[in-house]
Design a protein around this nucleic acid. Structure first.
Lengths: 334, 334
DNA sequence: TAGCCTACTTGAAACGTTTCATCTTTCATA
DNA sequence: TATGAAAGATGAAACGTTTCAAGTAGGCTA
């Protein structure tokens, strides 16, 4: 098969002009049925594939969105990317994905690449806030929506409301009769919003005690260690509920508690996590947790980036989405 | 800032020809230091960004590879995609990712999109084998490497050797003194290679018994159910090792066994999984498993696709990579 | 029959690069 | 003082599309 069969070769073979072939591709209704059929037939026969690069070059704007996440291998971002792809498809955009791997150099590389490829817009989960490179992009008119960064009026952004999530959990625990909630997680600044949310609610409830158990990071191992600490407490000192800053911590804690002889979940201690990772509902005791709907997040992000692309004068929006509480066995009422 | 600042605007402002500007970009050594500096300065001042589309259109070949996976949200593919991105970067290629979501329509959509965008080559994990569309792509000269499909001489492909993995596990269990191995997993055809590998080894070892416990699918819940079945067996009938077809099954089984009073892991029953998912090493008893190195897989896949791209007459290769056994506590010798 | 509308079709000009055959300048050498 | 080579700079052509003003038939109306 000849290497380059373009619109011109098709035109020649079908004995029409290139303009007509182009019309077949883009405005079939302006072409007579006879020519349409003939041209389509020739395309098939020659194995014509339209060159998207040339097309986009000429048209000035394409149909591709660039997305940069911290790490595709992180389930949350994998889900988010997936959801964005799906949401993009629904409105005829194709999302291509890059993973910055938490390296500034790679973040910049993808920003450059996408700008050179003239993507229609970008969705970015920044490694470390808004960089000068991003401001420059905006200044040049590139539509840009940020994840998990809040408040800068020069950008569209979209965040999950951790404070609201923390409040939800605390409210749920109190309503199901718990009186001493231990918040499990650290380092402090990484989990602050969830902690504050819990505090908001507990402060307003007489007779409810909220304590804080710090961790170095948020892994299963740390959760298990915390479990040992709680087990070693005098019964009277033990909390009757633990709100873990993420699911991994909660799962580790669960492992430790379930193996202990004298603590039952949820009867003696309720456990709630955060993130709703896949394994949460398959845990020994299915884990109550807070779900951050990636579908909704994605939908809104795509909306925002397209709005920005369609109207350069568009007013930036900072969205903050509420999460959703998933109640499972680990925090069932006694 | 003016909307379109191209090579021409730069040339004008720097009082040189467009050819020279292009040389500054592509062959800086053919330009005198003075002009180089001046042009670079102007580019910076004007905020010039080279148009990758036009460049690629003119050059005929780009630096982008298309990759299609079954589902980005699946940790294995997320890892694989991640590894491919990294491997691609090392050789100056950018990998863009699409997720077929197990839908033929989306698989086709990405194949079309990538072909229109004139990617340099594609890496595809096919939903359901080699489709006519893929043969057509190959026939038109598109470099194409398939994951997890074996044997078709018309394509480059790269597979993980499940039979070798199964054999490894069986050998390991026998060498550490186990005599009755239960293979846990189904439906049969999805796990056949691992089963056959185990069989190969057991058949050659006198006094070793291999039985099969079927499951409907490969989830934690199924694993837990299987645990209950084993617990209910008479002690004399119980296996002293379980080889689970994947980690989820193994984790579920582990949950069930650990909670039971009279079975200890690994003393009474050793458990080995398959895949080495993240949670495997954080399980209550860290899980022995078989690791499929995505790094290696990715490296080879990129090599293959580039080889095919550089030499159209290239001989297709069908690679089969051996997995790696990760021994952890769950199969420690007694 | 002239005039006009409709329905298609045409071909050249862009889009922003890279490439390459030429041209210009400079400078060392015979 | 020629001669030639080396180094740098030039500008038109090409890449494969879309767009659009202009052209051609054919048929309908008056």
């Amino acid at each position: 098969m000849d290497r380059s069969v373009g619109i011109r070769e098709v035109a020649e073979a079908a004995r029409v002009s290139v303009g007509t072939v182009s019309n077949v591709l883009n405005k079939p209704d302006r072409v007579s049925q006879a020519t349409l059929d003939r041209v389509l037939g020739v395309m098939d026969g020659l194995g014509f594939v339209r060159n998207g690069l040339a097309r986009q070059l000429r048209m000035g704007t394409g149909t591709t969105l660039g997305m940069i996440v911290l790490n595709v291998a992180n389930p949350f971002f994998a889900d988010l990317a997936h959801a964005c792809e799906a949401a993009g498809e629904r409105v005829g955009q194709t999302v291509v994905l890059g993973s910055s791997d938490q390296l500034e150099a790679r973040e910049d590389r993808y920003l450059d690449l996408f700008e050179e490829q003239r993507v229609r817009g970008m969705l970015v989960a920044p490694i470390d806030g808004i960089t000068p490179r991003m401001r420059q992009l905006r200044a040049r008119g590139m539509p840009l929506v940020l994840f998990d960064i809040h408040g800068d009026p020069g950008f569209c952004s979209i965040t999950l409301d951790g404070r609201a999530g923390g409040a939800m959990v605390a409210r749920h625990l109190i309503e199901t009769g718990r009186r001493h909630i231990a918040f499990l997680g650290g380092p402090r600044h990484q989990v602050e919003d969830r902690w504050l949310g819990a505090q908001d609610v507990c402060a307003g409830n007489q007779g409810v005690r909220l304590s804080h158990v710090d961790t170095r990071d948020q892994t299963i191992a740390e959760g298990r260690a915390a479990g040992a600490v709680i087990e070693a407490m005098a019964k009277s000192e033990r909390p009757d509920a633990v709100f873990a800053a993420n699911d991994l911590l909660a799962l580790g804690l669960l492992q430790a508690l379930v193996l202990s002889e004298d603590i039952r979940v949820p009867e003696d201690i309720a456990v709630v996590g955060y993130d709703d990772i896949d394994y949460a509902q398959s845990a020994v005791v299915p884990l109550s947790t807070v779900r951050q709907s990636t579908e909704l997040l994605a939908e809104r992000a795509i909306e925002l980036v397209l709005a920005e692309s369609n109207d350069p004068e568009h007013e930036h929006q900072q969205l903050r989405l509420p999460p959703e509480l998933m109640v499972r066995d680990s925090s069932a009422p006694r």
